[in-house]
Computed example of a mutant assay.
Amino acid sequence: MLERQEPTRGVAVIENRVTEMLGVEVPIVQAPMGWIARAQLASAVSNAGGMGIIETSSGELDAVRAEIEKMRDLTDKPFGVNVAQAFVRDPKIVDFVIDQGVRFVTTSAGDPTRYTAQLKDAGLTVFHVVPTLKGALKAVEAGVDGLIVEGGEGGGFKNPRDVALMVLLPLVRSQVDVPIIAAGGIVDGPTMAAAFALGAEGVQMGTRMVSAAESPVHENWKQAIVDAAETDTVFLNRFASPGLRALRTERTTRLEREEKVSMAEFATVADLYFGGDMEASIALGGQVVGRIDEVKPVAEIIAETVAGFHETIGALGQQYPSG
Rank of each mutant, 00 (worst) to 15 (best):
N237S: 07
N159H: 15
V167N: 12
H128I: 09
G285C: 11
R254I: 13
R257H: 02
M192D: 06
P160M: 14
G184P: 04
V105F: 05
E259L: 07
N16A: 15
V178F: 04
P216S: 14
S241W: 11
E259I: 14
I186D: 08
F239D: 13
L147T: 10
V102N: 10
T125Q: 05
H310K: 10
V97L: 10
A136D: 06
L171E: 13
D90T: 07
R238S: 10
D121M: 13
G285M: 06
D271S: 04
G52T: 07
E279T: 11
R245Q: 06
Q30K: 02
V144F: 03
D277P: 10
A193P: 12
S43A: 15
V217W: 01
H128R: 04
I180W: 02
D121S: 15
A122K: 12
R9F: 11
A48C: 09
T113D: 08
G308W: 07
D293T: 15
G80L: 03
G317S: 07
K260L: 04
I186F: 08
T56V: 14
V176T: 15
E60I: 08
G154C: 14
V217Q: 00
P179C: 15
G151N: 01
L244W: 06
A122T: 12
R9E: 13
L168A: 02
V178A: 10
M263Y: 05
F104C: 06
S322V: 04
E15P: 03
Q118L: 02
R245S: 08
T252F: 01
E230M: 06
D271Y: 14
T125W: 05
R72A: 15
L255I: 04
R161M: 07
Y115I: 11
R173K: 14
A267E: 09
G290M: 09
E20K: 14
G110K: 03
E219P: 11
G185R: 00
D90L: 12
A182P: 06
V81G: 00
L198R: 08
L22N: 02
T231W: 11
V234Y: 01
G23N: 03
S262T: 12
A224I: 00
T8G: 08
W35M: 08
G276L: 10
E67N: 02
H218I: 12
G185V: 05
M192A: 10
Y115K: 09
L171S: 07
F157N: 02
Q30T: 09
F196M: 05
N47V: 14
T116V: 00
P321Y: 11
K77Y: 01
E3T: 14
S108A: 14
M278H: 03
I301R: 03
R238I: 10
R89F: 07
Q30Y: 12
Q40F: 13
A283R: 03
Q287F: 15
E60F: 10
R245A: 08
R103K: 10
K158G: 04
S281I: 03
G286W: 00
G151V: 08
G49A: 13
A212R: 03
E265Q: 11
